[in-house]
Design a binder for these strands. Structure first.
Lengths: 155, 155
DNA sequence: ATGCAAGTTGCATATTTATACAAATATAGC
DNA sequence: GCTATATTTGTATAAATATGCAACTTGCAT
């Protein structure tokens, strides 16, 4: 499992710093970094890591990391201590925070651009999440845990 | 050329509102919407529109529209240019705007005094519309288009 | 109208990516 | 240790996607 973690880290590093336009290309770069991997495994890794393939004007297509934990990984790990609960009702999610933190908490959620979270509204200590009609709550939780790991502790 | 614009609009609409996991699937949905298209052309359209393919827990992979979060400095005279999407979930409408514009956008909606829109709540980049229980979404859209003509472009 | 350039499309196919399945490896419980 | 169970991986292949090319269309200047 540690082998895998190391591999993930290398993949992330390469994708963050270079314009990679195919898995074959990434395999070659990984080999240069001392990581041997087959295309099948890489495909599965990328899926697991939520790496997206997006059009790019020069290279045709490039891989990009999910725009979640990148910018503010350190920030959000601190800030998530201010979340006190997460509940659901119908097509709504309700995230309670310590007083005054709702807006701050809602920013990275907006940046997720999850197709399952249509929008958020922040009050003082409550963030309302408007969910897609057939959104899966488990998935929503997973997405949120990725930005706010500490959420696990209050679930 | 107008044929193409129309096709783009339909593609956008479908991708925004549904979880589409392959081009074949999208082709089928487009046909249902009266748009005949081959896989080659669709591939090119998606590339042109900067549509990304991202992993998704249930469906494996889904197509998503590019982040409309372009913080461009040029101020638009038309306020409706700051609306980036409109979706629905249950008895709620969700209007996404550029960061900071939600309150401004909500004002004329409130002034509509539509019996179908019971009230609005504006966050930073999201306006929540609470709809009458049996409100018709098509009618809501019509009302909004009357105030924000440019909405048509993002539907 | 005619011809030309630029743009668009479908077909066929190359390229790329995902996955079923079996083998290999790790993990837990005795 | 050993066996059972789960996880990870590679191989081979299926599935999905991108693209070269030729045909067709569109707009525009002659």
């Amino acid at each position: 499992m540690n082998q895998k973690t190391q591999r993930f880290a290398t993949i992330r590093k390469i994708i963050r710093n270079e314009l990679i336009s195919s898995q074959e290309e990434l395999i070659a770069r990984l080999r240069e970094c001392g990581v041997e991997i087959t295309q099948s495994t890489l495909s599965r890794d990328l899926k697991f890591m939520n790496v997206a393939k997006v059009p790019h004007k020069d290279k045709g297509y490039i891989y990009v990391l999910p725009n979640t934990v990148q910018h503010d990984a350190n920030v959000s790990s601190n800030i998530s201590d201010n979340i006190t609960s997460l509940t659901f009702s119908g097509n709504l999610g309700v995230l309670k925070t310590k007083s005054g933190y709702a807006s701050a908490i809602s920013v990275p959620i907006d940046n997720l651009d999850s197709p399952d979270i249509l929008g958020t509204i922040a009050g003082d200590n409550t963030v309302l999440l408007i969910l897609r009609e057939d959104a899966n709550r488990g998935q929503i939780i997973e997405s949120l845990v990725r930005i706010f790991p500490m959420i696990n502790n209050i679930l």
